[in-house]
Amino acid sequence: MATPKKARQKALLQFLTLLVAVVIIVVAAVLAQNWWNNRPGPQPHDVTVTATNGDAQIEVSPYIVCEPGLECPEGDVPNLPVGPDDTLVLDIPEDIHDHDWQLLMIYDDPAANDQQFHGAYDTTSVEIAGSVDPVNEGDPRPRLMVVEISSAMIGLDANDEETPYATVWSLSTMEEGDTLTEPDSPESP
């Protein structure tokens, strides 16, 4: 049989072993949480929005990404045709919907243009009708022509320092042969 002194030593050794294990687990959890919270997110130019119309689906890259106050080079605007009876679905990634962002819908009748402001985490997907009710009764239904998503994002500048970026995703929904004209231009009816 073990003497009382050896039993106390064994119990103390077990307690110290358990204490060291708990400390190691707590330190590992704190370090993992710190890494998770401070890991770099994607650069603004790498964030894409998924646009779907029926069976057609495309990834929309930013049209404009620039630091505020600087000249912004424009990118390409992809096209996903949306008919007047279709519904465009935009899936907004968490890198955009985890803070405030806005949606602009431009129609072939400027009176029908609409803008929506969204807060953080209030929506992850948006459905937009291909046409809306006319402003004046008897007028044709205004057709969706362009959709833009705007968001301020944080990215790294040329010096690898965090800086804000104005980021805009733009999508044309015009079908072949459609044109977006200014109301005062000679081509307008």
Rank of each mutant, 00 (worst) to 15 (best):
Q9R: 15
K10M: 14
K10A: 15
A11S: 10
L12Y: 14
L12C: 10
L12R: 13
L13S: 12
L13I: 08
Q14F: 09
Q14L: 15
Q14T: 11
Q14S: 13
Q14W: 10
Q14M: 10
F15Q: 15
F15M: 09
F15D: 12
L16F: 07
L16M: 12
T17K: 14
T17W: 05
T17C: 11
T17M: 09
T17I: 05
L18D: 13
L18W: 11
L18V: 07
L19Y: 05
L19N: 07
L19F: 12
L19R: 13
V20L: 15
V20T: 12
V20F: 13
A21S: 15
V22R: 06
V22Q: 07
V23N: 08
I24C: 12
I24W: 05
I24F: 04
I24E: 01
I25S: 11
V26Q: 02
V26D: 04
V27G: 00
V27I: 12
V27D: 05
V27E: 04
V27N: 04
A28Q: 05
A28W: 07
A28H: 05
A28M: 08
A29M: 10
A29H: 06
A29D: 02
A29K: 01
A29Y: 14
A29G: 13
A29S: 10
A29P: 06
V30M: 03
V30E: 01
V30Q: 00
L31N: 12
A32K: 11
A32N: 08
Q33N: 11
Q33S: 14
Q33I: 12
Q33C: 12
N34S: 10
N34T: 10
N34I: 04
N34D: 08
N34P: 02
W35Y: 13
W35N: 10
W36G: 03
N37S: 09
N37A: 06
N37P: 00
N37R: 11
N37E: 06
N37L: 13
N38T: 14
N38W: 02
N38V: 02
N38Q: 02
N38F: 06
R39N: 04
R39A: 02
R39W: 03
R39D: 07
R39I: 08
P40L: 07
P40G: 01
P40H: 03
G41Y: 03
G41E: 07
G41V: 05
G41H: 07
P42K: 06
Q43C: 09
Q43R: 06
Q43D: 07
Q43T: 01
P44N: 01
P44E: 02
H45A: 07
H45S: 14
H45N: 14
D46M: 11
D46Y: 07
D46G: 03
V47N: 01
V47Y: 01
V47P: 05
V47L: 06
V47E: 03
T48W: 00
T48G: 02
T48L: 02
V49E: 03
V49A: 00
V49C: 01
V49L: 04
T50I: 14
A51S: 06
A51T: 09
A51F: 03
A51R: 06
T52E: 02
T52I: 12
T52D: 00
N53Y: 02
N53I: 11
N53H: 06
N53S: 12
G54Y: 13
G54P: 11
